[in-house]
């Protein structure tokens, strides 16, 4: 266990370092932002002075090291466009994106799990053939289109829910549904497969033969065993939803990180774009690590596989 843990954490650190370096390299190709910060009338001397002030005239390796050093101190730099620390700009948006992603996860689980149970228990029957395609279609809808359709129906036609912004609890419903639809099929599909497998096991037949009611067997044994994969899937899907929020936030004018990133690109505010990408990747990598660790805790068999392979 310890060995697996150490190995996995080491891999994660390498991935984090790699992402930081890759982002640094990509942004290096963007050039430095000094030209954007100065008025057009600025002379070459002005540009040179600002460049040396901000450190863009230093050798690349020095820039890289100081950039790494800053990140290690959780210093994301300053937005040259807004003249504010990037960490401050980011921090004000994080709660919105988190709210949206968790609400979407709730929608995905709230629909995906019951559907997974129903189709898993009715494998091969009519109801499976009706429900699964509906869920799959929900997953194939581009979020920005499903979002627009939801706005047309609930905000414009019926006027029951707000179409944009983040005022009041009702405002999160439409974006959460539109984003959550992405993941609900994943939950339904995984649960369906594992219920079908679990129902076939001898202990289910034995328990039923002993006269234990179906409900008891199902909820006490089958559902518990088949929901193991859901825990890890939830961690991975949360990461997917956080990334997917970029588009949904723009559709619903939801003031989260995604909207911030898109606005920052349009104003060429690279330090903010970079911070959002780094933060998003870090969360993505760490949620994947958590998923792996959770998996080895709830299902010890995974370690045996590690050894044999």
């Amino acid at each position: 266990m310890v060995q697996f843990l150490v190995k996995r954490i080491f891999q994660t650190l390498v991935a984090l370092w790699g992402v930081i370096t890759l982002v640094f390299i990509i942004l290096h190709f963007a050039g430095d932002p000094t030209l954007l910060m100065l008025p057009e009338s600025a002379t070459a001397e002005d540009v040179a002075r600002l460049r040396s002030q901000l450190g863009f005239d230093r050798p690349l390796i020095v820039q890289y090291l100081s950039y790494m050093g800053q990140l290690l101190r959780f210093d994301l730099g300053t937005s040259y466009i807004q003249n504010l620390p990037v960490s401050e700009i980011i921090a004000s948006r994080i709660p919105y994106t988190l709210t949206l992603a968790f609400a979407a996860l709730l929608v995905a689980i709230g629909i995906g799990v019951p559907v997974g149970i129903i189709v898993g228990l009715n494998h091969g029957k009519m109801i499976e053939k009706i429900l699964m395609p509906i869920v799959l279609i929900g997953q194939s809808m581009p979020t920005f289109w499903s979002g627009i359709l939801l706005i047309m129906l609930f905000s414009i036609r019926w006027g029951v829910l707000p179409s944009s912004g983040a005022d009041g609890a009702g405002a999160v419903i439409l974006p959460a549904v539109s984003l959550g639809a992405l993941s609900m099929a994943t939950f339904a599909r995984i649960l369906r497969t594992s219920i079908i497998e679990e129902m076939d096991k001898p202990y289910v037949r034995a328990a039923r033969a002993k006269g234990i009611s179906f409900g008891k067997v199902f909820f006490r044994h089958v559902f518990r065993n088949s929901s193991i994969p859901l825990i890890t899937i939830a961690a991975i899907e949360l990461a997917t939803l956080l990334a997917g929020a970029v588009i949904v936030e723009t559709v619903f004018a939801w003031p989260g990180l995604g909207q911030l990133a898109v606005q920052a690109i349009n104003s060429r505010d690279f330090s903010v774009v970079q911070a959002v990408v780094l933060l998003g990747s870090f969360v993505y990598i760490i949620l994947n690590l958590i998923a792996d660790l959770l998996y080895s805790i709830v299902d010890p068999r995974i370690k045996i596989q590690e050894k044999t392979s």
Partner: peptide, 23 residues
């Protein structure tokens, strides 16, 4: 394959946004 791992650990839409921001 290390580079592959690294690129895959950035959410694709964010990587696309970052690259569009640059190019």
């Amino acid at each position: 394959m290390r580079i592959v791992d690294i690129v895959l650990s950035i959410p694709p839409i964010l990587l696309a946004i970052l690259t569009v921001a640059v190019v």
